[in-house]
């Protein structure tokens, strides 16, 4: 039992490690010709959400990625991957653009949770996530979301209402941080490891619950064969999804199960 308890929380801690590849590592190794597109056209540009166009095996796609940064300085500049409303609205703009040009969308998710500062609330963080959810629900282009590290709550879901949700072997996906859960339930954030075990938040749990469709193994993690096989998997899945009519209806059915 103790081992299992430690297991879930150890997974959370590992997923948070700054040595894991971040979204920009995936962007430069899985895709080619990435062109970053900035701004939400509402007055802001959020560096924690990197969006743009890229080629995946020669095919143009829209990439929406949460970037945490590696060094302390990068992490601070990226708000530790906690996306502001401006970031979700930039993603929204690029989703609409993808729809216009019939371009598949690939989301790379890595966040402890959405931004929770004063300005985030004042600029409508809840509304920004909500709008992305209804937008994603209606897209007729393929959407694949890959949780590459932390899948923290609504902040992650705002980029993960997808046809296919994949999760890295060492990533987690949860409704609340284990610390937050322990604080609310037991008034004791130190009980985070118990909370982590109760929350069923590991990649395996996400797969078992049907929340994730596929676990991406971390063999040769961060090396060329790892990125090559992820590229191949994404490319193949996008080809499959492109053949399917009524993607938004199927996406509806996918989430209707829960």
């Amino acid at each position: 039992m103790n081992r299992i308890v430690g297991g879930a929380y150890a997974a959370v801690e590992a997923a948070r490690s700054s040595s894991r590849p971040t979204a920009l590592d995936y962007i430069s190794n899985v895709f080619t010709s990435f062109i970053e597109l900035h701004g939400d056209r509402r007055g802001g540009d959020d560096p924690s959400l990197v969006g743009g166009l890229a080629l995946l095996d020669g095919c143009p796609v829209t990439v929406l990625a949460i970037e945490k940064g590696h060094t302390a300085r990068q992490r601070q500049a990226r708000n530790f991957g906690s996306v502001h409303p401006e970031g979700y609205r930039k993603a929204l703009r690029l989703m609409r653009q993808a729809q216009k040009f019939a371009r598949p969308v690939v989301c790379l998710v890595d966040t402890a949770g959405a931004g929770c500062g004063l300005a985030d609330e004042q600029h409508g963080i809840g509304q920004a996530i909500a709008e992305n959810l209804t937008e994603l629900a209606g897209l007729s282009v393929p959407v694949i979301s890959v949780i590459i590290g932390e899948g923290g709550s609504g902040g992650a879901l705002g980029l993960a209402l997808a046809d296919q949700v994949w999760i890295l072997e060492g990533a987690y996906y949860s409704v609340i941080s284990p610390e937050g859960c322990a604080q609310i339930l037991w008034k004791d954030p130190a009980k985070a490891s118990e909370a982590a075990a109760c929350l069923h938040l590991t990649a395996r749990d996400a797969l078992d619950l049907g929340v994730a469709d596929r676990i991406i193994p971390e063999t040769d993690f961060g090396k060329k064969p790892f990125y090559d096989s992820l590229r191949e998997a994404l490319s193949e899945e996008i080809q499959n999804l492109r053949k399917e009519p009524g993607l938004s209806d199927k996406r509806y059915a996918r989430f209707r199960r829960f």
């Binding site: 909500a130 959810l133 209804t134 629900a137 209606g138 709550s153 609504g154 879901l157 993960a160 209402l161 996906y173 949860s174 409704v175 609340i176 859960c181 609310i184 339930l185 109760c198 929350l199 069923h200 938040l201 749990d205 996400a206 619950l209 929340v211 996406r251 509806y252 989430f255 209707r256 829960f258």
Partner: peptide, 26 residues
Amino acid sequence: GARMQEGLLSLMQMAKVSAAVRRHAD
């Protein structure tokens, strides 16, 4: 907010309801 005792299944309700809202809106 989401009911944490049902973990990820609670989180998925946000997606499920949103998809239903969208269909109704469309």
